[in-house]
Design a protein around this nucleic acid. Structure first.
Lengths: 336, 336
DNA sequence: ATACTTCCCGCAAACGATTGCATAACTTTT
DNA sequence: AAAAGTTATGCAATCGTTTGCGGGAAGTAT
């Protein structure tokens, strides 16, 4: 910290008045004479007085900061969520401090402790891929810090939640694939203990059921990165009963599938249709451009932050909302 | 903030000792008896005592927080920088609070004021595209808050800086295009008042000069998004003297060029070579995959944060480093 | 018995801001 | 002229933590 920032005491000393008078003058308290107010304001302006938010937070027992725990900053979906959070937080004069778990449980625990220690006013969190124990989040609740989960939520803990409509996004995407002629559709999923995986899988299964397409468990894979997709897809394409459609848990993964399909000299979408999930930066860069489920990360971030700030402001005490952000299909070139 | 977090006073009251003793016991001060230490530590652990960082910062006049001002979170390059920053900050027990300028000057000013008010220990900043006045950054300096610029730096102000080796990245890319047979190379640039634009343009020009290729100012465009590229490229391809190579200021832009080129039924790279800059998420998703200049955002973030933390710790007083992060070419399919 | 250590611990001030209460100097009322 | 009211300001406590200094109790040496 620095010494050049002047304080209320400095102003008082310079003007020969007490700190309390300065404080009241600055906030236009009726008790203070106009003359005093004027001189205080002038001095404050001339010397760039800025209130020390630390002292304010301490005194007021109210820290205008919220913490966000996110698995990986570098993914478009997460950074767009963060962008939404940042926007509504700033509108209400809140700072946001970010923590990355890097999809690692220990980091996530460390992050929660740090946020509690910082006395943030609230926490927004998205579970790491490998989190299966939730005690650290319970500790946030026990500390009476409002908490809302987004995207990868936690069922065990009673909080506000914001999720994408994974089920119907998946359902519609798979339905679209079926309606455009796909008979055997593979599903590449994230680890199945995650709610998003479960929900999307259910959407996938229900769409198949609706159209009386037999469910083949051997068409469901755990694979959620481009690299993995490039590795596992070739042998799947080699199967005598190879799929004619792929539904991927995210765009990266879809892009990996595209790569493998082209390598196998199969045509997209004539031979193989591919559906992604996210509508991130890569979707339009693919050739053909990727059909995908738009999941509105920015909206999700705004919703999550709004919910959290309401709780922080003491609204909706005791009730927990479960906000579902709609998805919609974006049909481009990887589907018929 | 919440009331459930216990304080040092609470521990003292419960154990019938003074807060000072508790404080000393917690930090293993030699003056305190082992017995007292034990009971304090036990109580602290049992009731999840966590020091109040606000009070600590206030008392110590030292806020373990750094602020980052970034134009747009959602771009891969920036989020990877932030990711690097976050990593080294966390290693040294610093929090990072993020601010987006959204490429807007007023937001940037607002952000700097907020960070000063928060008494952050230091600031990392990347100029918005439209910033041409730097008074708000001077105010940070005047407040004796360490400041380091990254990527889009500011020449007028005396600070540490971390930049990508724009000049030689551009030079090498253009040289590569020339060496693989391109005779007329177009350059799509960001607004030219930005240092990165100037430097890359110089690299571009020098490469042409080196190979005695005449410089044609009509081949230099201000265009740095995919959308713009899609709009302006078709007519450029229609020119009788159309270019046979494109050097784009970023991958998005390159992806837009690719789109337009394919639309014009020209072949990549046989008819037209394309070089991007960044190596973001889309580069590999393109077909053919994009040849691009890797600019190591993560490294840049780590470097910037390291430099800043050194200054915060009082090292390298009075001297300003100018760190240049090397770039390297990644040759993929959009070049011969 | 006196003096000197050593060992533990508490007091109080400080960081910057807010706020209930007291108080000084005037002004108005009776 | 005394009582009451007004106006403008200061005092002091508070938020949670740290730390210089002082001091009591017990032990040791003279």
């Amino acid at each position: 910290m620095n010494k050049t920032q002047i304080t209320i005491k400095d102003i008082g000393r310079a003007l020969n008045i007490s700190p309390s008078t300065v404080s009241r003058a600055l906030k236009n308290h009726p008790d203070i004479s106009q003359q005093t107010k004027d001189s205080v304001n002038k001095y404050a302006k001339d010397f760039h007085y800025k209130p020390n938010t630390l002292a304010l937070s301490l005194r007021m027992s109210k820290n205008n900061t919220i913490g966000v725990i996110v698995p990986e900053l570098v993914h478009y979906f997460f950074s767009s969520i963060l962008s939404g959070i940042e926007q509504v937080a700033n509108q209400q004069n809140f700072n946001v401090i970010i923590c990355q778990s890097s999809e690692n449980y220990e980091n996530e625990v460390r992050n929660t402790k740090a946020l509690i220690s910082t006395r943030v006013s609230g926490v927004l969190a998205c579970l790491s891929k490998h989190t299966t124990n939730y005690d650290h989040f319970q500790e946030i609740i026990d500390s009476e810090i409002p908490l809302v989960f987004f995207d990868r939520i936690c069922i065990g803990i009673h909080t506000d939640r914001v999720v994408v409509d994974d089920y119907s996004g998946a359902f519609s995407a798979v339905e679209y694939l079926i309606q455009t002629g796909c008979k055997r559709i593979a599903f590449y999923s994230s680890p199945i203990h995650l709610e998003i995986s479960k929900n999307r899988k259910n959407g996938y299964l229900d769409a198949l059921r609706k159209y009386n397409i037999p469910i083949d468990e051997s068409l469901i894979y755990v694979c959620d990165t481009r690299e993995e997709a490039i590795i596992i897809t070739p042998e799947i394409l080699d199967r005598p009963d190879r799929p004619d459609g792929f539904f991927a848990i995210n765009d990266h993964c879809a892009s990996g599938i595209m790569y493998a399909v082209k390598l196998a000299k199969l045509r997209i979408p004539q031979d193989i249709s591919i559906f992604g999930f996210s509508d991130g930066e890569l979707a339009k860069a693919c050739d053909p451009m990727l059909s995908t489920v738009e999941q509105h990360g920015f909206e999700m971030g705004k919703n999550a932050a709004t919910l959290l700030l309401a709780k922080i402001n003491g609204e909706n005490q005791g009730q927990f909302t479960n906000k579902i952000v709609k998805t919609n299909l974006i049909i481009r070139g990887t589907t018929r």
